Amino acid sequence: MSDPTTQLSSRPNRRWLWIALAVAILAAVVVLLVETDDTANVTVKDAPAPAPTVTFLEVAPADTTATISAFAELRPRWDAEIRSAVAGRITVVHDTALAGERVAAGTPLFAIERTQYETAVAAAELSLEEAKLSLWRAQNAVLLARREFERTGTEPPNDLALRLPELHIAERTVASAEAQLEAAQRQLADTVVMAPFSGFITVRMVSLGQTVSAGEALVHLSDDRQYEMTVELGQAEWALLDHPVAGQRVVLKRRDGAPIGEARIRQGGGFLDPQTRQRRLFLDVINPTETILAGDFVQVAIEGRTIADTLTIPESALTRAGHVWIVDVEDMLMRLAPDILFRSGDKLTISAPEGSGPYRIAITPLASFLPGQRVTPQPAED
C-alpha cells in the first residue's frame, strides 16, 4: 500500500510539468509565426483622390427666337350626322352611303318615297294659281272703281270704295301661296338626301326599306378637305408669342419631328379654358395633303418673339432636381437653378446667368456632384 504523503507531493510536480509544456508550445508557435510573417513593407501615402472627369459644352449667351411647341388633335371642320329632313320610306341606298366611302359635296346618298310630296307640290301649285286669279279679279275691280269715280268727277270717300282692301288681301294670298309652293318643292327635293360637304362616311344608321321620320340620323359624315386645331398654352408660353398672333403661320410636325404641313392662326387668346385655365389658339390647316388625317395628334411649332441673353443647352444637362451644373474657370462645380424659357426637341433655352460667359455646361451631371467640387473638365465631342 502506497504512502499518502508521497502521492500528495507528486501532484504539484505534475502541474508544473504541464505548465512548462504549454509555455514551450506557445513559444514555438510564436517563433513559427514570426518566421512565416510577410515582412513586405507597405508605404501609405496620404494622396488626394483624382478629380472626376466632367464632359462639358461651352455655350455663349445669344439672342434666340422662341419656339413654342405643343400637341393638338387634328379635327375636321365639318363633322355631323346627316339627318332626314322629311319622313318616309327609304327606296334607294346609293353605294356612296356605305361606311368608308369618300364622297364629294352634292353626291346623292339616299332616296325617300316622294309620292306624298309630289302631291303636296301639285296642291300648292293649284293654290297659287287660284290666288293669282283672285289677285287679277281684285286688280280689275280696283281699276273699274277708279274709272267710275273719274267718270263722275268725284273723289272716292275711302279705300273701301276703291276696293283696295280686297286687292291687298289678294296680294298677300299670292305671296303666301308662293311660299307654300316653295316649301313643298323643298320637301320634294329633300326626298333625295345628298352630302352637304365632301368627306368620309364613317357610320351608316339606316337600311333600304326602312321608314324614317323627319330629323332621324342617316349617316355620319366627316370632312376631308378642311381641318382645324385648338392649341392650349400657359401664361408663360403665351408671353413668348409675337403678338398679335392672328394670321401667323405655324409648322405642323409628326411626333417624330418630321414636318407634314402648315397651319394659320385664325384667332386666339380671348378667353381662358374653364377647366385648364389656359389660353387657346384656333388654327386652320393650310392646303392639307393625304398625309394629314383627322384624329391624329401633331406637334405644332410656333415661332415667338426674340429673347436676348439666353443659353441653349442639351436637355440632358438638366438634373431631376431642376438644376444645371457649370464648370467655372477654376475647374470647380457651380450649381444653377435655371429660368427655363422654352423647350425645342432635345434642347432647352434658359436665361443666361449674370456674367460675361461663355459658360461650360456639364452635359451629363451626376447625383454625386457638390458645389465647389473640383473636377477634370473634358470638352464634348461634336
Rank of each mutant, 00 (worst) to 15 (best):
L33F: 13
R14E: 14
A217I: 01
R83Y: 03
E228I: 08
R343F: 00
I90V: 13
T276R: 11
I292S: 04
A40P: 01
Q248F: 03
A87N: 07
W238Q: 11
L109I: 02
S207G: 11
A362R: 03
A177T: 05
E118S: 07
R163F: 06
L98N: 15
K253L: 13
A123R: 13
Q235I: 00
E303R: 11
T115A: 11
W18G: 07
W16D: 10
D190I: 00
R225P: 00
R225M: 08
D346K: 03
A62V: 06
L135D: 08
R277P: 00
L33T: 08
P379G: 02
E81K: 04
G372C: 01
L126R: 11
A123G: 11
P76L: 08
P353E: 04
D38T: 07
F110R: 05
L336W: 14
W16C: 02
N140S: 14
V251Y: 05
Q187W: 02
D37F: 13
I112Y: 07
P50I: 00
G268P: 06
R225K: 13
E150T: 03
R83N: 13
V193L: 10
S356H: 10
A60W: 08
P353W: 05
T276P: 06
D63S: 12
A97F: 09
K253H: 13
G269D: 09
Q248D: 12
D159A: 09
A60R: 10
V324R: 12
T115V: 11
L17D: 08
T310M: 15
A66C: 08
I302T: 11
E125Q: 13
A175S: 10
T191A: 01
E129N: 10
M1V: 07
G357H: 02
Q373W: 03
F71W: 06
D296A: 14
R15A: 13
L218R: 02
E171T: 09
R320F: 03
I286D: 15
P288R: 12
I25S: 10
R114S: 14
D223T: 03
F149M: 06
R204Q: 15
I286K: 02
R280P: 01
L188E: 01
L241S: 05
I307Q: 12
S344I: 08
S198D: 07
G199P: 12
A51I: 01
A99I: 04
E166F: 00
A321H: 13
R249D: 10
Q180Y: 07
D309P: 00
A337K: 07
D190L: 01
E35Q: 15
